[in-house]
């Protein structure tokens, strides 16, 4: 069968079964490796034959990776290679990533950023801002990590503490001073942050 050079051969009809399988395996692996983001099934389907059982192929890849420090995962609507969890410490050490950065939940991170921009701010004000209860536990967990501290009290009944960020917070986020925080208005104008309905 004549093949034009521009046509990418996915069927590989010329190859014996074993070799064809190996070639498809290699292509899928290469594509997932080369991609910066998870690769959807449809993209992988473009490099293998119409009748190729993609799931079996992906299983084979997983099997081959047993014992390797990374694995094939399905995440974010596609397939990717992720390093295995037990190597997390080594990776963080290699790139000097602060261990605490990864352990903040989405809400904790949101509260921390709100405190950074609006400090000093009380727990009640944070609750109002987020539209959900910001618990004492959440505040305590940020305090335990030395990311926030109690600042001036607010002159309202109960004299609640206003929370402020610490030097450790600056260090963790690679900021020299609070002035280095991204300009909130500029982010909002660029559509990267939502303006609050104040």
């Amino acid at each position: 069968m004549a093949r034009t050079p521009s046509e990418f051969d996915v069927e590989l009809a010329d190859l014996p079964t074993e070799l064809r399988w190996r070639e498809w395996l290699a292509r899928v692996e290469a594509v997932v490796f080369a991609a910066a983001e998870p690769v959807p099934r449809e993209t992988l389907a473009r490099v293998v034959g119409r009748d190729c059982p993609l799931d079996l192929l992906l299983d084979d890849i997983r099997a081959e990776l047993r014992g390797r420090p990374y694995e094939l995962v399905k995440v974010g609507g596609g397939y990717a290679f992720h390093t295995r969890a037990r190597h997390g410490a080594a990776i963080r050490a290699a790139f000097a990533i602060d261990p605490d950065v990864r352990s903040l939940s989405k809400l904790e991170a949101g509260v921390l950023i709100a405190i950074a921009y609006e400090q000093p701010i009380t727990r009640a004000e944070l609750t109002e801002r987020f539209g959900r209860e910001i618990s004492r536990d959440l505040i305590a967990s940020l305090r335990d990590r030395a990311l926030i501290a109690a600042g001036p009290r607010k002159p309202v009944p109960g004299a609640p503490f206003g929370y402020v960020t610490t030097a450790r917070f600056l260090e963790m986020f690679g900021l020299e001073t609070l002035g280095d925080l991204p300009d909130l208005e500029a982010l909002q104008d660029a559509g990267l942050a939502q303006a609050s309905e104040a």
């Binding site: 400090q119 000093p120 109690a150 600042g151 001036p152 009290r153 402020v164 609070l178």
Partner: peptide, 17 residues
């Protein structure tokens, strides 16, 4: 004025304070 007056001694009055 408030931030300064209402901070415990040794406490952090916040960036403006």
């Amino acid at each position: 004025r408030d931030a300064f007056a209402l901070t415990r001694p040794g406490g952090d009055p916040g960036p403006a304070g």
